[in-house]
Simulated assay, not measured.
Amino acid sequence: MCVSVCVSHGICRSLSLCVYIYSNTHSGGGLRWQMAEFTHLVVVKFKEEVVVEDIIKGLEELVSQVDIVKSFVWGKDIESMEMLRQGFTHAFMMTFGSKDDFTAFQTHPNHMQFSATFSAAIEKIVLLDFPVVAFKTPQ
C-alpha cells in the first residue's frame, strides 16, 4: 500500500487537496483507494401526505447555504421491484471533504432547523455515513 497526494485529479472536481491510499485488490489486479472524502447517504420512505417536492426544495436550499457540503445528489427509485424496495422511494447523498466537515454539518444551525421538518416527513429511513473508497471513478 502507498499514500499519494493529488492536487488536481479529475475525481476531486476542483483544485482542492485529496489524499488517496492505494492498494492492490485480490481480483483483477486493479487499484482501489480511500479518498479524504466522507459521504452521508439517506434512503427514505416519505409519509403519504408529504409534498416531496417541498422537502427536496428545502434540502437544496440547505446545501446551498452550507459551504462544507461539497456535493449533493438525489434520486427517486423508478426501477426496483416493490418487494426489494421495501417502501423506500428516495435516496439523498451528500459528500464532505472529511469526517470532521460532516460532524460540523450535523451541528450547523441550518441543518438542525431543517432536520425537524425532514424528520416529520419520514415514515422509514436508513442512514449510512462512510469514508469514500473508490475502485472505478467517473472519467
Score class of each variant (00 low, 15 high):
C2V: 12
V3E: 09
V5K: 13
V5P: 02
V5E: 13
V5W: 08
C6Q: 13
V7G: 15
V7Q: 15
V7P: 12
H9S: 08
H9L: 06
H9M: 03
G10M: 00
I11M: 07
C12E: 14
S14N: 14
S14W: 02
L15Q: 14
L15V: 10
S16P: 02
C18I: 04
C18W: 05
Y20W: 08
I21G: 01
Y22I: 01
S23W: 04
N24K: 06
T25N: 08
S27C: 13
S27L: 11
S27T: 12
S27I: 03
G29Y: 05
R32Q: 10
Q34V: 08
V42R: 03
V43L: 09
K45N: 03
K47T: 08
K47A: 09
E49M: 06
V51E: 13
V52G: 01
V52I: 05
V52F: 00
E53K: 07
D54Q: 14
D54F: 00
I55V: 15
I56W: 01
K57D: 09
G58Y: 02
L59W: 07
E60A: 08
L62N: 13
S64C: 06
Q65T: 06
V66Y: 03
V66I: 15
I68P: 07
K70I: 03
W74Y: 15
G75A: 11
G75N: 06
K76I: 08
I78N: 13
E79R: 10
E79Y: 12
E82M: 10
M83H: 05
M83Y: 11
M83T: 14
M83E: 11
L84A: 11
Q86C: 13
Q86L: 14
Q86V: 07
G87Y: 00
G87H: 02
F88Y: 15
F88L: 14
F88H: 13
T89Q: 03
M93A: 13
T95A: 09
F96N: 10
F96G: 11
F96H: 09
F96L: 05
F96P: 07
G97M: 05
G97H: 10
S98Y: 04
K99V: 04
K99R: 09
D100F: 03
F102S: 00
T103A: 15
A104F: 00
F105Y: 15
F105R: 06
Q106F: 01
Q106A: 08
H108S: 03
H108T: 07
H108I: 00
P109V: 10
N110L: 14
M112T: 14
M112H: 03
F114E: 08
F114M: 03
S115A: 14
S115P: 00
S115T: 13
A116D: 06
F118T: 00
S119I: 03
E123S: 08
E123C: 05
I125L: 04
I125C: 09
L128S: 07
D129W: 00
P131D: 07
V133T: 12
F135V: 12
F135N: 01
F135G: 10
T137D: 12
T137N: 09
Q139L: 11
